[in-house]
């Protein structure tokens, strides 16, 4: 977080506030649709009104989560392994974001 502490602090909290309604909506939907058949789930997830907030939840959630992982990593790891873990946290976060974005594109916007 060195040299960009204030913006990280602000973005962590801004993303947290945005995630509150998304997470509440998502959790209720998750319980409501956990027993769905494939056809029901596909129909529900293909609607842009579902898939776009879904993608927003994953992208903003992974962004917020990566800031948190960085805080944990720099607190406990002080050797050269710190760079390795920080890199892994970026790869994990970007991978999760990309997977969700690609899936939503396929579900709602590709043919």
């Amino acid at each position: 977080m060195s040299k960009k502490g204030t913006s990280t602090f602000v973005l962590q909290r801004a993303s947290a506030v945005v995630l509150i309604p998304l997470a509440v909506w998502f959790l209720i939907s998750l319980v409501a649709h956990a027993g769905d058949s494939f056809a029901e789930m596909q129909a529900w997830l293909s609607k842009p009104t579902t898939s776009i907030p879904f993608a927003a939840l994953v992208v903003i959630g992974a962004y917020h989560g990566r800031i948190g992982l960085e805080e944990v990593i720099v607190d406990y790891i002080h050797s050269w392994m710190k760079t390795v873990f920080l890199t892994l946290s970026w790869i994990a976060a970007l991978g999760v974001m990309g997977l969700a974005a690609w899936s939503v594109y396929q579900l709602s916007f590709a043919g």
């Binding site: 997830l45 898939s51 939840l57 994953v58 948190g68 396929q106 579900l107």
Partner: peptide
Amino acid sequence: GVANFAGVALIAAWLFAVAQGPAFFA
């Protein structure tokens, strides 16, 4: 927080499975 990060990864995997079709989703 760390558990929620793993949860978000699971959500992404779930979305991906639905997008790939019934065989992936089963």
